[in-house]
Lab assay of single mutants.
Amino acid sequence: METPSQRRATRSGAQASSTPLSPTRITRLQEKEDLQELNDRLAVYIDRVRSLETENAGLRLRITESEEVVSREVSGIKAAYEAELGDARKTLDSVAKERARLQLELSKVREEFKELKARNTKKEGDLIAAQARLKDLEALLNSKEAALSTALSEKRTLEGELHDLRGQVAKLEAALGEAKKQLQDEMLRRVDAENRLQTMKEELDFQKNIYSEELRETKRRHETRLVEIDNGKQREFESRLADALQELRAQHEDQVEQYKKELEKTYSAKLDNARQSAERNSNLVGAAHEELQQSRIRIDSLSAQLSQLQKQLAAKEAKLRDLEDSLARERDTSRRLLAEKEREMAEMRARMQQQLDEYQELLDIKLALDMEIHAYRKLLEGEEERLRLSPSPTSQRSRGRASSHSSQTQGGGSVTKKRKLESTESRSSFSQHARTSGRVAVEEVDEEGKFVRLRNKSNEDQSMGNWQIKRQNGDDPLLTYRFPPKFTLKAGQVVTIWAAGAGATHSPPTDL
Rank of each mutant, 00 (worst) to 15 (best):
T224E: 09
K261N: 10
D243P: 00
T224G: 14
D272Y: 07
M200C: 12
E262S: 14
L204N: 14
K208I: 04
E228I: 01
L271W: 05
D243F: 15
K261R: 12
L226E: 15
R240H: 10
N195S: 03
T199N: 03
A242S: 15
D254N: 13
R220A: 14
N273R: 07
R220T: 07
N231K: 11
K270L: 00
D205M: 03
Q182F: 15
R240F: 12
N231A: 09
V191I: 09
L271D: 06
R190Y: 15
Y267F: 08
T224M: 04
R189Y: 08
A242W: 05
E238D: 14
A244Y: 00
R190I: 03
Q198S: 07
S268I: 13
D230L: 05
Q234T: 00
N209Y: 07
S268N: 15
K265W: 13
T266G: 05
T218K: 09
Q234C: 08
K181S: 03
K180N: 09
R225P: 10
R221H: 07
R190V: 13
K265D: 09
T224N: 15
I229E: 14
E257Q: 09
Q198H: 01
R221Y: 10
L226V: 08
A244F: 07
E253G: 11
Q184H: 14
E247P: 05
K261S: 15
S239P: 00
Q198N: 06
E262W: 00
L245Y: 05
R235K: 10
Q255I: 06
D272K: 08
E223L: 13
Q251H: 08
E264P: 04
N273M: 11
G232F: 08
L248Q: 02
K219R: 14
R216N: 07
K181N: 01
R216P: 05
V191W: 04
R196I: 01
R220G: 12
S239A: 00
K208Y: 02
E228D: 09
H252I: 11
K270T: 03
Q184V: 14
A242P: 04
K181P: 11
F237Y: 11
E228Q: 11
E236Q: 08
K233I: 00
N231Y: 06
L271T: 01
F237V: 11
D272P: 03
E223D: 10
N195Y: 00
A244V: 09
R196C: 03
D205T: 12
V256P: 03
A179R: 08
K233E: 09
Q207F: 00
R225G: 08
R189V: 08
H222I: 06
E213P: 02
V191G: 03
E238A: 02
R235P: 03
H252S: 11
K261E: 13
I210P: 00
D243E: 10
Q258N: 07
A179I: 14
K219D: 01
T224S: 09
K180M: 06
E264G: 05
R190H: 14
K261V: 15
Q258G: 09
E217R: 11
R240T: 02
K265S: 12
K181M: 08
R196S: 02
K201M: 13
I210H: 02
M200H: 13
E217C: 00
E186R: 02
R216V: 15
K260E: 05
S268D: 05
F237S: 05
D205F: 10
N231G: 08
E257D: 02
E228M: 07
M187H: 05
E178W: 10
E178Q: 07
V256S: 01
K181R: 14
E214D: 11
K181V: 14
Y267D: 01
E214K: 09
E223C: 06
A193K: 11
H252Y: 02
L241D: 07
L197R: 14
T218C: 15
Q182K: 13
E217N: 11
V227Y: 07
V256Q: 01
S212D: 13
D243R: 11
Y267G: 01
V256H: 07
K180D: 09
E202W: 01
R221Q: 06
K208V: 00
I210N: 04
K181H: 15
E257N: 09
M200L: 12
F206N: 04
V256I: 08
Q246V: 02
D192K: 02
A193W: 07
F206I: 01
Q234A: 09
K219F: 08
E262N: 11
E202T: 06
D230H: 07
L263W: 04
E214A: 14
G232V: 07
E213V: 07
K265E: 14
D205P: 02
A250C: 15
A244W: 00
L183P: 01
K270N: 11
E203Q: 07
S212H: 13
E186K: 02
T199V: 02
E238P: 00
H252L: 01
